[in-house]
């Protein structure tokens, strides 16, 4: 029973709180937000503000009038949900679809399960996938980002995402080598010159945000590394087997939402396993499913489906790889 004896004061307080963690994530999302403003202009600001405001509003309404619980919107989790949701949609999405997405994220994926800490699935991803299924046309028309600091009209041109171009190109019987010439280069993808959702276009900004969270110990390395490594290895094997059909692994990682998903969404504390090995298995599953859906699935992009599917097995992973309990020896 020694464990239960608490020594006398002074105690060390870790200064960690839910609020602090959540606002750290918000700060980590800011570089991505900045790039999306540079690439998509005012639309990015508008959509993000609408998403954040409606997430906060729905959470407040549900807590105040349906659950009659004390209000917890200042913890910042709804802000993150709103930002991530906005980062997962094309910049020309009508505002009312964004509001529906926020309602699904908060009103279906989060609050009915009991609010922050109890939701099984990542709210932003549930919102995103519902929108993708419900509004397939609006959710897959991608305005091309304009070159930074130019004043050209933003939605002058729409185009496909690199993954969409690959899917349709292969369906038309084109060769992958031929397709690669039309696709954006690695440098363009790093800096955000590709078609795509608000927050997924610039790989470099996501990496900066991820390193910041890692440095502040908000996330651990397990999930992003195992997610990206598995996707890379699996895609590279496919590419080696038949370069005419499959793009290289490095390209898979930089295009689409893989980095955004691996850094910001798979690492959500609530919906990922607790122990290190659990997290690694979780990340491997995400990476494997992502490439499987991208290569053989009906949709060009598979990150959100992969993460949601793996969210569903988190309770099993927690059972299979239980976190080490404090003070217990094997």
């Amino acid at each position: 029973m020694d464990l239960l004896n608490v020594s006398g004061s002074p105690h060390v307080h870790s200064r960690e709180s839910v609020k602090k963690i959540m606002w750290t994530v918000v700060i980590a999302l800011l570089p991505t937000f900045a790039v999306s403003i540079l690439s998509f202009g005012f639309d990015a600001v508008k959509l993000t503000l609408i998403a954040v405001a409606s997430c906060l509003l729905f959470e407040w309404l549900i807590q105040k009038f349906l659950l009659k619980k004390p209000c917890s919107i200042s913890d910042g989790s709804a802000v993150i949900t709103g930002m991530l949701l906005a980062f997962n949609v094309p910049s020309n999405l009508p505002w009312w679809i964004m509001v529906i997405g926020a309602l699904v994220a908060i009103g279906i994926a989060k609050m009915p399960f009991g609010g922050l800490g109890n939701n099984l699935f990542n709210p932003a991803l549930v919102g995103r996938v519902s929108l993708l299924i419900s509004f397939p046309q609006q959710m897959t028309t991608w305005p091309m980002p304009r070159p930074w600091f130019s004043h050209a009209a933003v939605d002058a041109t729409t185009g496909a995402t690199p993954l969409g171009m690959i899917k349709t190109g292969l369906a038309q019987g084109k060769d992958m080598g031929e397709l690669m010439n039309q696709l954006p280069s690695y440098a363009q993808m790093l800096l955000g010159e590709q078609g795509g959702s608000l927050g997924e276009v610039a790989a470099i900004a996501i990496i900066i945000g991820g390193l910041f969270m890692l440095f502040r110990k908000v996330i651990s390395w397990h999930i992003p590394v195992s997610f990206i490594a598995t996707a890379f290895v699996f895609a590279t094997i496919l590419h080696a087997a038949n370069p005419a059909l499959y793009i290289p692994g490095s390209y898979h990682i930089l295009c689409g939402g893989l980095l955004l998903g691996a850094v910001f969404m798979a690492t959500d504390m609530v919906t990922s396993p607790m122990s290190g090995w659990g997290k690694i298995v979780f990340g491997c599953g995400c990476g494997l499913l992502t490439i499987i859906i991208r290569v053989w699935g009906a949709y060009p992009e598979g990150v959100s489906f992969a993460i949601l599917l793996m969210n569903a097995v988190v309770p099993l992973l927690n059972k299979a790889f239980p976190p080490k309990r404090f003070g217990v020896t094997k």
């Binding site: 279906i108 419900s134 509004f135």
Partner: peptide, 22 residues
Amino acid sequence: GDGILVFVLAPGAFLALGFIVA
């Protein structure tokens, strides 16, 4: 217009039923 397609698909059945029951 097309409506919120998810409600015509299978997940919409579960969602709508769940909220009506609630």
